[in-house]
Design a protein around this nucleic acid. Structure first.
Length: 841
RNA sequence: GCGGGCGUGGCGAAACUGGUAAACGCGUGGGACUUAGGAUCCCAUGGGCUCUGCCCUUGAGGGUUCGAAUCCCUCCGCCCGCACCA
């Protein structure tokens, strides 16, 4: 492949000429974008000889317009891509489209155009916006999840999970979003509302497709420890979401019925203190327990009332319950335990039944007091003694077990394990681990998604679509059907033949959650055109895992958890050799206006196109990188944008003025430098050192830009004050500046690299400059002199001055004398090159 | 309640290993250039005072240290995630 730079053809064949005096981003930006595009400057191929760097940003949903959050996300990523490229890494920096999904489908229905057409035209538009911002993507690797050659492999991966027993169809109480007319995964419900349209989610019993992500709960939790490069916050959120808790399951036999109620508890040590049992209204045994009892009608009414309450309100409700009249038997002491139904017991968590120990659980205590249920203390605090009759605060801390049969006197923490062993020996219960994490519900009753590749045959039952028949293509459009939003409305799609018996059969009409499409796209980028597999193994072995992943915090649980799950499944299937997909994760802050996230509904949008039109892409990018540290929220400021623009103009003018001077200038020879020149030279290399460290070690891009501003200020000062500007030094300053600026303002840097500095190859393939350690040497340094830690004077001393000399000189300073008078010098702390602190009494 | 994080000028922020608090930018004030300036360049810009200089200042209070924005303790405030989780 013919590549420009590094021995390839020159990028730009123009004559070196005087640089225009005016900075005109509208001229230079499209010019270089065209050059970069036609020379495939950012195209990469696997090259085992070079270290790779896979730099990925979360791909966008093609909603139609790029917003400032995207600009920030991709500007941050682009700096790192360009930097590592200049550092000699083989950088994979791809872009694609998370293109299936509801908003596109809804928009398409509204406008009466096919969802595909709507999506592809959005992609067209947004690709143009990205290109106008000059991001260094290898566009040859572009993927869109709604393209058949992509979703074919999404379907293939579904079948992989199916074959591995990780995809199953089951009936469950699921989250139904009336706004989106589809079910949602637990992760996609936020505070009882749909994460996307904020409708109140309803609970419905439906048969759906699930992925058995719970089988990976422990590994997903455990392996968080491997993710040193992830923010604590995200790891905490995932750990929280998985919600592992250790304890025991205990079986309570129901009196008069051949049934047991199993409870999950984290406190088996309190088992002797159980005074009642509470079932969720949805518990399978409720109806059997009350059958024929006088309480039956009260209980049914209560259950109905609770079930009719939306989940969100249910959380706010006061704890209420009704007795069923039935009893069960505490397996450890044979006591009869009344069974209640309560509105606070969740059917989805644990076993949907809880044993109540009011003395040692606050919620149980309040419930017991409300209904006059007994309280029985079985853990005594050290030294203290609890009064069952009057206590209003449950004692939840460790203590000594009492009234607990064989365990009396046992410390409760030790008791937990011992009681579990006791239960297991007698087959009354067992050690158990419970998770908050639920299986991932991936069915969607909507058209615009990847069809689930399953066929239902009356004779053969459920049959997976054979691999060679993939992809199961979406029908072209549903928009001509009135109100039809699901594949169930497309008879031509539904009707098929059974792959096993050839008889008539029906296709599954659910499509897959779009999060499924985005759970593996980072693998596709390694070999986006691979036709025989979702990805090419060698390419994946070379590029993956992703070295750096940049995106918003909103995906902390959903996308990032699902992607980790997929990676582990693929690892277990022997298809990849790593267990975690993203080595380093960076979550950037929001872009705000008026203190709030930009959003159409709030009407506080700043349109990236307008900023590019007014100031150019380089200014837009520079502002967004400079205005705040990457992890902080960034408040948009037009004045700030102008400041960024002013800086670029300042760079431009300096280059324009110096261009004739530096044209034929040779390399610097610092031995010829005067004091001022040495100082300028040092500033250049100090800046280089700081910018390099800020990018690579700290990802502190705002301070790296401020360092470059300081350098530019220094060069202006030199230009104004020097009797004659030394051409080699001017060239050194300009050249290093342009190289450092290249990741931040790529167009301006490219233009100056060619036009002011006369280079032929792209600045973006140039090597990142090395710091000259000699340049950093100072002959003299300023040392601060303190008395008792208070700054009193400064002195200029030879850089090599030793402790004794510094001490002597400091003590002799006239400004220091008054502070020593009549005092005793107890100690002098000397930090060579920095400060002297005289301690007096 | 549990978990994660944050409090520094008028504003965004900087101070990386405990060593000159406020770099850089915005805003503001002043000056230069100019027919003009909303362009450009330069200077000033935390607060106070008895102003050659001194005192105060990093949410509040305390501690460790020669020295604390930075480390420790207590408290206050704010943000984010989860939350009747048994």
């Amino acid at each position: 492949m013919e590549r420009p730079g590094r021995g390839g053809a020159p990028l730009w064949q123009g004559e070196v000429r005087a640089v225009e005096t005016e900075y005109r981003p509208h001229v230079i930006e499209p010019k270089w974008q065209e050059v970069w595009r036609t020379t495939h400057l950012y195209r990469v191929v696997e090259d085992p000889a070079r270290p790779k760097y896979y730099n990925l940003e979360m791909f966008p949903y093609p909603s139609g317009d790029l917003h400032m959050g995207h600009v920030r996300n991709y500007s941050l990523g682009d700096v790192m891509s360009r930097y590592y490229r200049m550092r000699g890494y083989n950088v994979l920096h791809p872009m694609g489209w998370d293109a299936f999904g509801l908003p596109a489908e809804n928009a398409a229905i509204q406008r009466g155009v096919p969802a595909a057409q709507w999506t592809w035209s959005n992609i067209e538009r947004m690709r143009g916006q990205l290109q106008r911002l000059g991001f260094s993507y290898d566009w040859d690797r572009e993927v869109a999840t709604c393209a058949p050659d992509y979703y074919k492999w999404t379907q293939w991966l579904f079948l992989l999970l199916y074959k591995r027993g990780l995809a199953y169809r089951g009936k469950a109480l699921v989250n139904w979003c009336p706004g989106c007319q589809t079910v949602l995964a637990n992760e996609q419900v936020e505070g009882g509302q749909c994460w996307r349209c904020h409708s109140e989610v309803e609970k419905q019993e439906r048969e759906q497709w699930f992925f058995r992500i719970t089988a990976y709960a422990d590994r997903l939790l455990e392996d968080l420890k491997l993710l040193d490069g992830w923010p604590e916050r995200v790891k905490a959120m995932q750990a929280n979401w998985i919600g592992r808790s250790e304890g025991a399951e205990v079986d309570f036999r129901v009196e008069g019925l051949d049934e047991t109620i199993t409870v999950f508890t984290t406190r088996p040590d309190t088992l002797w203190g159980v005074t009642y049992m509470v079932l969720a209204p949805e518990h399978r045994l409720v109806e059997r327990l009350i059958e024929g009892r006088p309480e039956a009608e009260t209980v049914r009414a209560f259950v109905q009332k609770v079930k009719a309450t939306p989940a969100r309100e249910r959380e706010q409700m006061e704890k209420e319950g009704v007795p069923t009249g039935a009893f069960c038997i505490n397996p450890v002491n044979g006591e009869r335990v009344p069974i209640w139904v309560g509105n606070y017991v969740l059917s989805e968590y644990g076993t949907g039944a809880v044993m109540a120990v009011p003395a040692h659980d606050q919620r149980d205590l309040e419930f017991a007091r409300k209904y006059g249920l007994p309280v029985k203390v079985v853990i005594q605090p050290p030294g203290g003694s609890l009064d069952e009759a009057t206590m209003t605060e449950a004692y939840v801390d460790p203590g000594i077990m009492v009234h607990s049969g064989p365990f009396d006197g046992t410390p409760s923490q030790e008791g937990i394990q011992r009681v579990i062993a006791y239960l297991e020996e007698r087959a009354l219960g067992r050690k158990a681990v419970n998770y908050r994490l639920r299986d991932w519900l991936i069915s969607r009753q909507r058209y615009w998604g990847a069809p689930i590749p399953i066929i239902y045959c009356d004779r053969c039952g459920m049959v997976p679509v054979p691999e060679e028949d993939l992809p199961v293509l979406l029908p072209a459009s549903l928009t001509d059907k009135t109100g039809g939003t699901s594949l169930a409305d497309a008879p031509d799609f539904v009707a098929t033949t059974c792959p096993q018996c050839g008889g008539p059969a029906r296709r599954e009409t659910d499509t897959m959650d779009t999060f499924m499409c985005s759970s593996w796209y980072f693998l596709r980028f390694a070999s986006p055109h691979e036709e025989s597999a979702p990805f090419n193994r060698e390419a994946v072995d070379y590029w993956l895992p992703v070295d750096r992943y940049t995106g918003g915090i909103e995906h902390a649980v959903m996308h990032l958890l699902y992607s980790r799950f997929f990676t582990k499944v693929l690892y277990d299937a022997g298809l990849v050799s790593f267990q975690e997909p993203f080595t380093r994760l960076f979550t950037q802050g929001m872009v705000t206006l008026g203190g709030a996230a930009m959003s159409k509904s709030r009407g506080n949008i700043v349109d990236p196109d307008e900023i590019v039109n007014t100031y150019g892409a380089d200014t837009a990018r520079l502002f967004i990188l400079f205005a705040a540290p990457p992890e902080n929220d960034l408040e948009w400021s037009e004045a700030g944008v102008e400041g960024a623009h002013r800086f670029l103009q300042r760079v431009w003018r300096l280059a324009a003025e110096w261009a004739p001077l530096v044209k034929g200038a040779g390399p610097v020879n610092p031995t010829e430098f005067g004091k001022e020149e040495r100082d300028v030279y040092r500033t250049i290399h100090e800046t280089l050192q700081k910018v390099t460290g800020d990018i690579e070690d700290r990802f502190s891009l705002n301070t790296s830009i401020s360092a470059m501003m300081t350098l530019v200020n220094r060069l202006y000062q030199y230009k104004e004050e020097a009797e004659a500007v030394r051409p080699e030094l001017a060239r050194e300053g300009l050249e290093k500046l342009v190289l450092m600026l290249a990741p931040f303002a790529p167009h301006l840097a490219e233009e100056l690299w060619h036009e002011a500095l006369g280079h032929q190859e792209s600045v973006h393939l140039a090597a990142w400059p090395e710091v000259d350690p000699d340049a950093l040497q100072r002959e003299e340094v300023e040392v601060v002199v303190q008395v008792n830690g208070k700054l009193r004077d400064r002195m200029l001393v030879p850089a090599a001055a030793d402790e004794a000399a510094l001490r002597e000189q400091a003590l002799a300073l006239p400004k220091i004398q008054p502070f020593l008078e009549g005092k005793e010098v107890v100690r002098v702390v000397v930090v060579p090159g920095r400060l002297v602190n005289v301690v007096v009494k």
